[in-house]
Protein backbone atom coordinates (compact mmCIF):
# COMPACT_ATOMS: atom_id res chain seq x y z
CA UNK A 1 0.00 0.00 0.00
CA UNK A 2 1.28 3.51 -0.82
CA UNK A 3 1.59 6.45 1.52
CA UNK A 4 -1.72 7.78 0.21
CA UNK A 5 -3.48 4.69 1.47
CA UNK A 6 -4.36 3.35 -1.95
CA UNK A 7 -3.24 -0.18 -2.86
CA UNK A 8 -0.31 -0.82 -5.14
CA UNK A 9 -0.74 -2.49 -8.51
CA UNK A 10 0.83 -5.60 -7.05
CA UNK A 11 -1.65 -5.61 -4.18
CA UNK A 12 -4.54 -5.41 -6.64
CA UNK A 13 -3.02 -8.19 -8.72
CA UNK A 14 -2.65 -10.36 -5.64
CA UNK A 15 -6.29 -9.73 -4.68
CA UNK A 16 -7.40 -10.77 -8.15
CA UNK A 17 -5.77 -14.13 -7.59
CA UNK A 18 -8.87 -14.82 -5.50
CA UNK A 19 -11.15 -14.42 -8.51
CA UNK A 20 -11.48 -17.55 -10.58
CA UNK A 21 -12.61 -18.75 -13.89
CA UNK A 22 -15.12 -21.23 -12.46
CA UNK A 23 -14.78 -23.77 -15.24
CA UNK A 24 -11.00 -23.86 -15.45
CA UNK A 25 -10.77 -23.52 -11.68
CA UNK A 26 -7.77 -21.22 -11.83
CA UNK A 27 -7.34 -17.60 -10.88
CA UNK A 28 -7.77 -14.94 -13.55
CA UNK A 29 -4.33 -13.42 -13.05
CA UNK A 30 -2.38 -16.59 -13.73
CA UNK A 31 -4.74 -17.53 -16.54
CA UNK A 32 -3.58 -14.32 -18.24
CA UNK A 33 -7.04 -12.77 -18.33
CA UNK A 34 -5.90 -9.54 -16.65
CA UNK A 35 -4.29 -7.37 -19.31
CA UNK A 36 -3.67 -4.26 -17.26
CA UNK A 37 -4.07 -2.65 -13.83
CA UNK A 38 -3.84 1.07 -13.14
CA UNK A 39 -4.21 2.72 -9.72
CA UNK A 40 -4.61 6.46 -9.30
CA UNK A 41 -6.09 8.46 -6.44
CA UNK A 42 -7.98 5.49 -5.08
CA UNK A 43 -9.45 4.64 -8.46
CA UNK A 44 -8.51 1.26 -9.90
CA UNK A 45 -8.85 0.52 -13.59
CA UNK A 46 -8.60 -3.06 -14.77
CA UNK A 47 -8.42 -4.17 -18.35
CA UNK A 48 -9.21 -7.82 -18.80
CA UNK A 49 -10.62 -10.44 -21.12
CA UNK A 50 -12.40 -13.80 -20.90
CA UNK A 51 -11.46 -17.23 -22.17
CA UNK A 52 -14.64 -17.53 -24.25
CA UNK A 53 -16.69 -14.62 -25.56
CA UNK A 54 -20.35 -15.06 -24.73
CA UNK A 55 -19.64 -17.42 -21.84
CA UNK A 56 -22.51 -17.29 -19.32
CA UNK A 57 -19.94 -16.88 -16.51
CA UNK A 58 -18.41 -13.74 -18.06
CA UNK A 59 -20.60 -11.26 -16.19
CA UNK A 60 -19.92 -12.99 -12.90
CA UNK A 61 -16.18 -12.96 -13.45
CA UNK A 62 -16.31 -9.26 -14.33
CA UNK A 63 -18.47 -8.45 -11.32
CA UNK A 64 -16.35 -10.64 -9.06
CA UNK A 65 -13.28 -8.74 -10.21
CA UNK A 66 -14.94 -5.44 -9.42
CA UNK A 67 -16.18 -6.64 -6.03
CA UNK A 68 -12.85 -8.09 -4.95
CA UNK A 69 -10.88 -4.95 -5.78
CA UNK A 70 -13.51 -2.72 -4.19
CA UNK A 71 -12.93 -4.58 -0.92
CA UNK A 72 -9.32 -3.42 -0.74
CA UNK A 73 -8.49 -0.64 1.70
CA UNK A 74 -8.00 2.69 -0.02
CA UNK A 75 -10.09 1.90 -3.08
CA UNK A 76 -13.07 4.13 -3.68
CA UNK A 77 -13.78 3.47 -7.34
CA UNK A 78 -13.26 0.47 -9.60
CA UNK A 79 -13.60 0.37 -13.38
CA UNK A 80 -13.37 -2.93 -15.20
CA UNK A 81 -13.03 -2.89 -18.95
CA UNK A 82 -13.41 -6.18 -20.79
CA UNK A 83 -11.71 -6.29 -24.18
CA UNK A 84 -11.55 -8.98 -26.85
CA UNK A 85 -8.40 -7.84 -28.53
CA UNK A 86 -5.95 -9.39 -28.32
CA UNK A 87 -8.03 -12.58 -27.98
CA UNK A 88 -7.04 -14.79 -25.09
CA UNK A 89 -5.06 -17.92 -25.81
CA UNK A 90 -3.69 -20.52 -23.39
CA UNK A 91 -0.19 -19.21 -24.19
CA UNK A 92 -1.02 -16.14 -22.11
CA UNK A 93 -1.07 -18.20 -18.91
CA UNK A 94 1.68 -17.83 -16.33
CA UNK A 95 4.28 -20.57 -16.17
CA UNK A 96 2.62 -21.88 -13.02
CA UNK A 97 -0.74 -22.13 -14.77
CA UNK A 98 0.81 -23.75 -17.82
CA UNK A 99 2.45 -26.34 -15.59
CA UNK A 100 -0.85 -26.87 -13.83
CA UNK A 101 -2.65 -27.59 -17.08
CA UNK A 102 0.24 -29.68 -18.30
CA UNK A 103 1.73 -27.78 -21.21
CA UNK A 104 4.59 -25.78 -19.72
Amino acid sequence: MSDTGEPSVETVREALREVYDPELGYNIVDLGLVYGIAVEDGRVEITMTMTTPGCPAADYIEEGTRERVAMLDGVHDVAVQVVWSPPWTPDMMSDDAKRHFGFA
Binding site: N27, A70, M71, L72, D73, V75, H76, H100
Partner: peptide, 26 residues
Protein backbone atom coordinates in the same frame (compact mmCIF):
# COMPACT_ATOMS: atom_id res chain seq x y z
CA UNK B 1 -10.67 -7.20 4.68
CA UNK B 2 -12.47 -4.53 2.70
CA UNK B 3 -12.75 -0.86 2.28
CA UNK B 4 -15.02 0.91 4.68
CA UNK B 5 -15.75 3.39 1.92
CA UNK B 6 -17.75 0.86 -0.07
CA UNK B 7 -20.78 -0.29 1.90
CA UNK B 8 -22.49 -3.40 0.61
CA UNK B 9 -24.23 -6.47 2.06
CA UNK B 10 -22.03 -8.29 4.54
CA UNK B 11 -20.19 -11.10 2.75
CA UNK B 12 -18.73 -14.22 4.25
CA UNK B 13 -15.08 -13.99 5.28
CA UNK B 14 -12.62 -13.51 2.47
CA UNK B 15 -8.90 -13.32 2.89
CA UNK B 16 -7.72 -9.71 3.01
CA UNK B 17 -4.96 -9.59 0.43
CA UNK B 18 -3.83 -6.27 1.81
CA UNK B 19 -2.86 -8.11 4.95
CA UNK B 20 -0.90 -10.78 3.20
CA UNK B 21 -3.67 -13.32 2.86
CA UNK B 22 -3.00 -16.91 2.06
CA UNK B 23 -2.89 -18.21 -1.45
CA UNK B 24 -6.30 -19.67 -2.06
CA UNK B 25 -5.75 -21.02 -5.41
CA UNK B 26 -2.79 -23.19 -5.62
Amino acid sequence: GRSAALPRPAPAPLTPTTKGGANHGN
